[in-house]
Design a protein around this nucleic acid. Structure first.
Lengths: 198, 198
DNA sequence: AGAAGATACGAGCTTTTACTCGTGTTTTGC
DNA sequence: GCAAAACACGAGTAAAAGCTCGTATCTTCT
């Protein structure tokens, strides 16, 4: 790994932008590295000067997504104490930014919302999963402090799974119906999370 | 398409069996037609005597799955009037056979439980989706006859989506923990479906 | 029995795709 | 100013995978 110049950092960012677009259009598997290079306006050789292989591109893109998502979520909870908010508000403040983030970054779900991950991708996506899990767990902990850690983790995992499942439905819905589908997603989460524990 | 002899029908069944195993092990994309042929103990040439291409194999396998699943579901509801059953029982009788089917046929989820379908696969999987949607809709209709058709369809779709999302979690869980994960899945569905409509 | 057609084989063709490498240009450090 | 290093190019390589084709055997039907 050579020392990067400003020009190089910029190229890397351009390549990741392009990768996001190509992943969004074709999915990870069908996205070709040459297509990403072309989309970035760069030769294949240059692409491989910055990224060792296709998985490395996915990993770098995932890393960037993690950062951006954390910032969005922190902004949404800014100045509010989770334990004083009720469930609908808490769900709004957690779901809305992630949803908005997905609408703004269509490439995200190609790395995130898939039950079966190829080996390379799984490693790249793991930080996203871990980051999200931590955030949801902290929200649940705020509302139900007495819940054992095991149950909390399981509940968070299930909630994330539900969210992942419905993401494609939300993104595939025509803009006019989107609010209704989003409401349905929140309804599922609310009914699952707000019900009394077993 | 030539007229099949008994030998040919048997070979086709063997190839589909093999395809199920290979899809289960590698997923649809990474499964190679040569690997399927080898698993079936057949040459690549023979494979293409029965199936025009890889998508056709998936389509045939999907067709077989639809039939088997319908039979399993009908058996589970045998002699019971859905409208007289309560939600937990109804969920049990719908979810259990599909879950058992998935455990017995690991290749099924490679064709079914994926939010992003390649073009060819989407066509092959569509009958499965349609069949399942119809079954779930009829169950919902039995319990909530007054629900408008639109809402019923949307609710059924969401329920199926939830099920698909949690399927990998269930199948990935160690056999010891599987009952707990299954219970969690049913809990989500119960809370979603049994709550008063908006 | 004999012809026609179905089944079977597997080497190899074609296309695709991740990735390389030789060469040339721009930037940096001294 | 000059060498070293980073950046850039794009034709080319090697491997993988879907699929074909010539040939040979087995079944069926008359």
């Amino acid at each position: 790994m050579p020392k990067r110049q400003a020009r190089g950092e910029q190229r890397m960012a351009e390549i990741l932008d392009a990768a996001g677009r190509v992943f969004a259009a074709s999915g990870y598997e069908k996205a070709t590295t040459n297509a990403i290079a072309a989309e970035a306006g760069v030769s294949p050789g240059s692409l491989y000067q910055f990224f060792a292989n296709k998985d490395a591109i996915a990993a770098a893109l995932a890393g960037r997504f993690v950062t951006q998502m954390r910032e969005a979520h922190e902004a949404a909870l800014l100045g509010a104490d989770p334990s004083t908010l009720d469930w609908p508000e808490l769900i709004d403040r957690t779901v809305d930014p992630i949803l908005a983030f997905n609408v703004a970054n269509p490439g995200f779900k190609a790395l995130f919302a898939r039950p079966d991950m190829p080996a390379g991708l799984a490693a790249a996506a793991e930080p996203i999963q871990a980051a999200l899990l931590g955030r949801v767990e902290s929200v649940i902990a705020a509302k139900a402090p007495s819940l054992p850690a095991d149950d909390r983790t399981r509940t968070a995992r299930v909630a994330i799974q539900i969210f992942q499942a419905m993401l494609p439905m939300v993104l595939a819905s025509p803009p006019g119906e989107r609010p209704a589908v989003m409401a349905e997603l929140k309804k599922v989460l609310y009914r699952y999370l707000s019900a009394p524990s077993p």
